[in-house]
Amino acid sequence: MSTLLKKKVDGWAVKALPGRCVFCLDALQGHLPWCEACFPELPWNLPACPVCAEPQPGAARGRRCGHCLRRSPGYDRAWVPLRYDAEVAGLVQRFKFDASPRAGRVLLELLKAGLSPAVQRWPDALVPVPLHPRRSRERGFDQAHWMAVRLGRQLGCPLSLAQRNRDTRTQRGLDRGERRRNLRGAFRVPAGLPRRVVLVDDVMTTGATLDALAVACRQAGAEEVQAWAVARTPAGRH
């Protein structure tokens, strides 16, 4: 199915199925796009490393993962409420590669549902993970910027925009160390960032991209940096 046709079908579904759960299509009682039965069955990222949010086995609950013990990331902590799996992976793929606004709205609501009111009030500015201009033109859609703009409006939080200094090669197929080296010095952030900054992305894989952007944000004046994403890729599936 072509991207244009998928967008048309997506738009039709929004109009034709009002008040229906996005996962099971049962009737909804409230304003959220999911039903009470589906919500707890989603692949929630629990337990997870309290620093980088990597999914953990039960025995490691609440402890730093081995990666964070060996090397602390550039951000102070990550909030990533879901695992990149099952229904969530499907939503992310439709949002990222098909530019589905409906999938984007659901993912944004899921992100907010996974953040406490105190965490939502924490940032002074949001910094979406930027695509290189060439890649943005090719894709025709910048998913992190799309999310950050709408999240900023809802939280009453301004955006600060970063830039990619170079068009890094794809991270697919690279291990954690190779990803980090590939992104070293890849971002530039204008000076004068406020004290508390949140980096926004749709999916967190190893965290190398958010790590590199966090370093650039600290160089631009941020004192505390958090990373927010909707879903985290489990270890071994990078």
Rank of each mutant, 00 (worst) to 15 (best):
P47H: 04
P55H: 10
P117C: 02
L110Q: 10
Q171Y: 00
S2Q: 07
R121P: 03
D202K: 13
A59M: 08
L4G: 01
T168M: 08
D26L: 05
E41N: 04
C157L: 13
A220V: 06
V129G: 05
L210H: 01
G30S: 13
W79Y: 15
R164N: 06
L91R: 05
F23M: 03
A186E: 03
R188W: 11
V198T: 14
L210F: 00
P81N: 04
Q93T: 10
L199G: 02
A27E: 13
L111I: 12
G74Q: 04
A231F: 04
A16S: 06
A231W: 04
L91M: 10
C35E: 01
W146P: 02
R172I: 13
R195D: 15
L155P: 01
L159W: 13
A113D: 10
T3N: 09
A212C: 08
P234G: 07
Q219G: 13
A60R: 14
V80H: 04
M204R: 13
P123V: 13
G152L: 10
P133E: 03
H67D: 15
N45E: 05
V200C: 06
G156S: 12
P130C: 08
K15I: 13
A214E: 09
A208G: 10
R83I: 04
R181W: 11
R180K: 10
Q143K: 08
P101E: 05
Q171P: 07
A103M: 04
W79D: 11
Q219R: 15
D26Q: 12
R63M: 11
L110Y: 06
G140I: 02
S136P: 00
D85M: 05
A48S: 14
D202V: 11
W122K: 08
R83V: 11
N182Q: 05
P158N: 15
C65I: 07
V149A: 12
M147I: 12
L46D: 12
P81Q: 01
Y84W: 12
L131R: 01
C21D: 00
G90K: 02
G236R: 08
R134H: 03
A103S: 14
P33W: 01
T205I: 12
V119F: 10
G156I: 11
G207M: 10
G66Y: 06
L159Q: 11
R232K: 14
L111S: 06
F141E: 00
A220E: 08
V149C: 07
P190G: 05
L28M: 11
L69A: 06
S160R: 15
P43Y: 00
A99I: 01
R63I: 00
A235K: 11
E36V: 08
G177W: 11
V203M: 10
A13C: 09
R172P: 00
G185Y: 01
R164V: 07
